[in-house]
């Protein structure tokens, strides 16, 4: 099978090298007609605005949307995640074109500028279940996006707790001092109930800045903290044949994400395996043992045969 890497801009060489380590040949894709020669696509990291502009110049968007719609496996890292998302915030003035297909709301450049770029060990149970290896994956986040909301059909593969020491910035208009005082009081009360200490409060250029720090706490407290769960953002998802990560597996030596994607590609070739995987997933979630009955099976079987029919119909059309 042929795997393409969108080579408009960004880390496409790194992706091709990672594929090569798995013995897979990656093809550079720069034009719409080249998409017809491949069965799976990786959209690499890079500057999403630049990549969107270049795709627009050469009228790539209709072909990319068609590619996603045909159900061929597509994996987006960082900028690629933004490309695949249905909705994105934090874009340039006037917005940018997206390919869409992934039922997510993505915040572009969520963590801030380059100084806030970081590496972190992520817990990836789903990846480990398929690929084995260590329980965590070293995620490299470079001016990375994050997924704020994911639709019901989206499987979350990894999330990340935003460090609570990250300073919060709240713009406050000058004539609303009353609001400000109330806000500070509210903040202090929230902070104290959640084991946070207000470290600093200062004004700079008409903005009020708060810095807060998590107090040293016992294990019981850290488990019960409510803020903790609210600060989690999603950084890796899967929906059908779409895979998306906010970090850059192509920059690390660990090729598990690439091999995971290659399994998705191979599965697309063999529809029966897809069905098996579906049942296995359901079994894994305890759905089959609880709800398995003949009518449910019949329903899924009919959905599956419809998918097969559509697939064969589409391929004959192409």
């Amino acid at each position: 099978m042929a795997v393409g890497v969108l080579a408009l801009q960004g880390s496409f060489n790194e992706h091709i090298a990672a594929l090569r380590r798995l013995g897979v040949k990656g093809t550079e894709i720069r034009k719409a007609e080249q998409l017809e020669t491949i069965n799976a696509l990786i959209i690499p990291g890079g500057e999403s605005t630049t990549m969107a502009k270049l795709a627009e110049y050469h009228n790539l968007f209709p072909a990319l949307r068609e590619f996603v719609k045909m159900g061929k496996p597509v994996w987006g890292t960082c900028a690629g995640l933004i490309f695949l998302a249905d909705k994105a915030v934090g874009q340039k003035e006037g917005g940018q074109e997206l390919v869409g297909g992934l039922d997510c709301l993505v915040h572009r450049n969520f963590f801030g500028s380059q100084i806030q770029s970081f590496e972190a060990d992520l817990l990836v149970p789903e990846l480990v279940a398929t690929e084995g290896g260590p329980a965590s994956f070293r995620g490299v986040f470079i001016r990375a996006p994050a997924i704020l909301e994911a639709g019901t059909g989206v499987e979350v593969l990894a999330d990340y707790s935003v460090p609570s020491r990250k300073p919060t910035v709240q713009p406050v208009e000058e004539d609303k001092e009353e609001f400000l005082i109330r806000y500070v009081l509210y903040f202090v009360s929230v902070a104290s109930t959640n084991n946070f200490t207000l470290m600093q409060l200062y004004v700079l250029n008409g903005y009020w800045y708060f810095t807060y720090q998590r107090r040293h706490s016992c294990s019981f407290c850290s488990n019960s903290g409510k803020i903790n769960s609210e600060e989690k953002v999603i950084v890796a998802v899967k929906q059908g044949n779409l895979l998306a990560t906010a970090f850059h597996p192509e920059l690390t030596a660990d090729t598990r994400w690439h091999s995971y994607f290659m399994k998705m590609v191979n599965k697309g070739e063999q529809p029966f395996l897809l069905m098996r995987e579906m049942f296995l997933t359901m079994n894994h979630q305890g759905l089959i043992s609880q709800y398995f009955n003949s009518s449910l099976f019949l329903f899924f079987f009919s959905v599956y045969s419809f998918c097969c029919l559509e697939r064969s119909f589409m391929s004959s059309e192409a």
């Binding site: 960004g10 880390s11 470079i142």
Partner: peptide, 11 residues
């Protein structure tokens, strides 16, 4: 991480 941003600027 520092080199990473430069890698994202490639091309």
């Amino acid at each position: 991480v520092k080199v990473g941003l430069a890698q994202m600027l490639r091309g």
